[in-house]
């Protein structure tokens, strides 16, 4: 992350290339601001308090997943199992009697499943040398199978009221789930950019051989990365279940790809070793704004998907140019 940027900055540069550096470093932030301003001009309703509050509510589940995905991608991996973990957590959230007294049990079981999934992913990737794509694909399918077997295909029940509050209510216009996202983001940003473990994550992702030479236990770091992703995905699933209020087997469907897309748009390179949590969150914000704007402008909902496809490829191409 900042290391790479600083290295670029140490060379003597003319003003124009400095401008380029600024554009490439903050390009995605500028893009987000431009997107918001443009959407506001096209449709004033976009900037209404109501709509902003609405977007922020939707941002939290995706943001939480992106933070976990960031760890895994910086470690040269990717986690396709997050959506399955989210749906499983949501099914568990409604699996009991739907009262607040169940909350500790629900949270405990969900986080345990998320952590266990991450552990299996990490072990497959490190100890068995399975490619992250396949390892997380396999755990995704297995978890999906268990979920369907458990619910017999038709989950039902209610989310405890506390989850409803966290997932869908606001305090002075600020959603509770956004506060949760902020807390998680701050904690993991500190972990990633200030702690020894964070440094080990960047070094391991940048070059596993170097990591080993430096005495870093690359396997352990990688496994912890996947566990973080699994745990955050289960938290996101609980938050999302509180947002939608009802449950089906596919809560969170599409989040695996959306979270990867958001991370890549936010400058977290699939080749590993680079990117920040803030970048990933900016990427997530762009996705949320695009989705919201498409709907608000009265365009067909299908355009959301088409625009998403175009944005993915353009953003990735932008970063490839930058790194060349």
């Amino acid at each position: 992350m900042s290391d790479a940027v600083h290295l670029q900055g140490t060379e003597d540069e003319s003003n124009s290339s400095k401008l380029k550096t600024i554009a490439s470093r903050f390009g995605i932030h500028i893009f987000l601001v431009a997107l918001i301003v443009m959407s506001g001009i096209i449709s004033p309703a976009f900037l209404s308090a109501n709509n902003i509050s609405n977007m922020l509510l939707q941002a939290a589940p995706l943001g939480i997943v992106v933070i976990g995905q960031a760890f895994v991608i910086i470690l040269r991996g990717l986690d396709l199992s997050v959506a399955s973990v989210m749906a499983t957590a949501a099914v568990i959230a409604t699996g009991l009697s739907g009262v607040n007294a169940d909350v500790p049990a629900i949270v405990g079981v969900s986080l345990a499943i998320g952590a266990a999934t991450g552990l299996v992913n990490g072990l497959l990737v490190t100890k068995r040398d399975v490619s992250p794509f396949l390892a997380t694909l396999a755990t995704m399918i297995v978890l999906q199978g268990f979920r369907f077997a458990y619910t017999q295909g038709a989950p039902s029940g209610n989310v405890p009221p506390l989850f409803r509050v966290i997932g869908s209510e606001t305090l002075y216009g600020i959603p509770y789930n956004l506060m949760l996202l902020a807390v998680i983001a701050v904690i993991f940003t500190v972990v990633l950019s200030r702690s020894r473990f964070g440094r080990e994550v960047y070094i391991t992702g940048g070059n596993p051989v170097t990591a080993r030479l430096l005495g870093i236990n690359a396997d352990r770091v990688t496994i912890i990365g996947y566990v973080i992703s699994g745990v955050l995905a289960s938290i996101a699933g609980l938050v999302l279940s509180g947002y939608v209020g009802i449950v089906d087997n596919w809560v969170g469907r599409g989040f695996e790809l959306d979270s990867i897309v958001a991370a890549v748009m936010g400058g977290i390179a699939l080749t590993g070793g680079r990117g920040t949590i803030i970048g990933g969150l900016v990427g997530a914000a762009i996705l949320i704004v695009v989705f919201n704007a498409v709907l608000l402008f009265g365009m067909p909902v299908q355009l959301q998907i088409i625009i998403k496809g175009l944005v993915i490829v353009m953003a990735a191409a932008f970063y490839v140019r930058r790194s060349n």
């Binding site: 755990t139 399918i141 978890l143 999906q144 199978g145």
Partner: peptide, 8 residues
């Protein structure tokens, strides 16, 4: 449902 588990 279990067929999915088998596939994974």
């Amino acid at each position: 449902h279990y067929q999915l588990i088998a596939q994974g």
